[in-house]
Design a protein around this nucleic acid. Structure first.
Lengths: 268, 268
DNA sequence: CTTGACTCTCCCCCAGGGGCAGTGCTTATA
DNA sequence: TATAAGCACTGCCCCTGGGGGAGAGTCAAG
């Protein structure tokens, strides 16, 4: 029984285009080809091969691989090595996509949070903060090197991070060159090493202000905050904190006018 | 500060080829192009864009999608819809690969088993079989329609299948036209419907023989089996079973000379 | 000035086809 | 019998995201 390409396409669920391609690549050669018209005619043996090709394609083998398998193997026992290799490959791919999926999920969640808390700006507020577990990387140098610290923490603590980046300042006042500070992330769990310190950051009473705008105008907000503290005659406890609620994002640098930064000074 | 394409390639970890492609597609246009030599020069703003592109590419966005996103969005908030859509897409892909992975895994396991049990052929043996849960599809007709039944069962019970395909014969003798039989699979669990019956198949004492070779020589093996039973004067209990240990595979039709079929007749 | 390291454009390659043009073949209907 | 569907054929260009290389031009240092 011979079938034209159209009929064969229907019974094998392979497109006509694909069948012609497979003929070209000598993957699936029609039983006979009319030498005048060029019409392809397929038979039952072609059907077996077509079924095999379809299964292998569903298993995500490339045409080149399928060709090799069809040359090499006549029974399923022969192709176990191919199948096992492909299985491994697919599982690696699943792992990769799971990693990507987690990354995207994290960004979406973070963004959701930060759009929710977008009010009450530039108002000094007294409140209590919870004690929380952090992973920090203590540095000495210029403030703009802080990015390296966050990069390191992100790489090493990646999946344990459960909050926004913060920076702890151990100097009471502004320093140009050898300031002491510690970029850190809240984490769920994790262990430190000689570079990264994982520990509890003590909570308590604090004075806080949410600053909206680029970082180079932070000075004004600090002034407001310290004026308030002076007026109330509170005692300051180091380190104080900057929480980067919304800054240059993972993807876009964003507009600095919309950056949100919470300044927190602990008081006794 | 301007960088040549080679320098820029190093600091962005994008290949020179890619950078030229992105220029072509107007995804990442160099800050300046020498109009005589055609040399591309990149600056810091290009660097931001390059970082964005790299992240999005890691998130598996296509260049076309990235282009659209770069046109549409200037902040991360703008692209949440894109991210969420991509997240969904990736999770779908994970599911697809998990299905494929399971299928391949099953084939590999089945093949392993069947190569292990490749001895003791054509020897009548008395033994006990366990009671086991099966999903069956009762049919009346010609024996060679059995394939349809297996296809249906495979489609509907797919992931619960935990053993080799079997066929139950409800007629004592061979019938040409309207034989009664029931293709079935052992399953771990599952519920039936008006077409598929899920139930326990009673175990017990039986006489068994492993037939090696094509199905059209089964008659000889059946003769051997029934001669044995007659000699021992056992009583036969219906249905009897054929277990297709190794038949035309999921992928290859294979060589009928190597097919393995176990014939089981239950005795009282 | 030379030389070696860069860079340019252009072309071919990969997989798995989609889509279209122009032509040829068979068969059914008016 | 003429014609119109309905298939089939080849061949060309298109898509993605680049890799590889040829041949020619450019830049900077010795």
């Amino acid at each position: 029984m011979l079938y034209t390409i159209g009929e064969f396409s229907k019974i094998t669920a392979l497109s006509i285009k694909s069948l012609r391609l497979y003929h070209d690549k000598e993957l699936l050669v029609p039983a006979s080809v009319d030498e005048f018209t060029g019409y392809r005619y397929y038979d039952d043996r072609n059907f077996d091969t077509a079924r095999t090709i379809k299964v292998l394609k569903d298993f995500d083998f490339s045409l080149a691989e399928i060709n090799e398998i069809l040359q090499d193997c006549s029974e399923e026992a022969d192709m176990m090595t191919y199948l096992e290799a492909k299985l491994q490959e697919i599982q690696d791919r699943i792992k990769h996509y799971e990693t990507v999926s987690r990354s995207i999920h994290m960004i979406v969640e973070i963004e959701k949070e930060s759009t929710m808390s977008d009010n009450s700006e530039f108002v000094v507020e007294e409140k209590n903060v919870e004690t929380l577990l952090i992973a920090g990387y203590r540095m000495t140098g210029r403030y703009d090197e802080v990015g390296k610290g966050f990069a390191l923490l992100g790489k090493r603590m990646g999946r344990h991070i459960c909050g926004k980046p913060m920076n702890l300042y151990y100097d009471g006042e502004y320093k140009e060159g050898d300031a002491e500070f510690e970029p850190c992330f809240p984490v769920r769990k994790g262990t430190g090493d000689n570079e990264i310190s994982v520990r509890e950051l003590q909570g308590g009473k604090c004075v806080s202000l949410i600053h909206k705008g680029p970082y180079d105008t932070l000075g004004q907000s600090y002034k407001k905050l310290f004026d308030y503290i002076k007026e109330k005659e509170y005692e300051i406890a180091l380190p104080h904190r900057e929480i980067y609620i919304k800054g240059p994002g993972m993807i876009f640098k964003g507009n600095p006018k919309n950056y949100l930064t919470e300044l927190i000074v602990m008081i006794d």
